[in-house]
């Protein structure tokens, strides 16, 4: 055993340098899509409050439920629900993309771009489709 004093253990939470982050990279489409997967996930996280509220209103009885249905039916409610639908479908397709990667496929330069574009186009088309059907069956 040597007599040198050990270097003090770094203080937890000290301002140590972090690895290069977002600001040093040129934005790429695939990178933006990765960020959007996270943003939609977080958006859906808070959006789940709406589902709980809807179910709670139904359990509370007709009066309150009718009021909440009125809110979701207003233009403001419809905008929120439209955004929720897009976030949900985009995140779902992004999740399918993760499954492909998990299986060890889709890492090539071309495949990555194609899958990212398909996710974005698919989510927009599906969202519009869902809402058209929604208004038709009403």
């Amino acid at each position: 055993m040597s007599e040198t004093t050990p270097t003090p253990h770094p203080r937890i939470g000290a301002d140590r340098p972090l690895s290069p982050h977002l600001q040093v990279y040129r934005p790429l489409f695939t990178m933006m899509m990765s960020i959007v997967h996270r943003i939609t996930g977080v958006g859906l996280y808070f959006g789940m409050f709406l589902l709980a509220w809807w179910l709670f209103a139904a359990a509370s009885g007709p009066d309150y439920f009718t009021w909440v249905q009125g809110f979701f039916g207003s233009w403001f409610g419809q905008v929120i629900l439209f955004g929720f639908t897009w976030a949900l479908l985009h995140h779902m397709l992004g999740g399918l993309r993760h499954f492909v990667w998990d299986m060890g496929h889709g890492f090539g330069e071309v495949e990555r771009e194609t899958m990212a574009k398909a996710t974005l186009a698919g989510s927009v088309i599906l969202t519009v489709l869902v809402w058209i059907i929604g208004y038709m069956v009403r």
């Binding site: 007709p62 009718t66 979701f72 639908t85 479908l89 779902m92 499954f99 869902v130 929604g134």
Partner: peptide, 26 residues
């Protein structure tokens, strides 16, 4: 995530069916 795929698709269909529903229908 795997379980979410069919559950979310079914959920979207259910919401479409119930979007303008009365309390009794819901």
């Amino acid at each position: 995530a795997v379980a979410n795929v069919p559950l979310v698709i079914g959920f979207v269909i259910l919401v479409i069916m119930l979007s303008g529903a009365t309390h009794a229908e819901f």
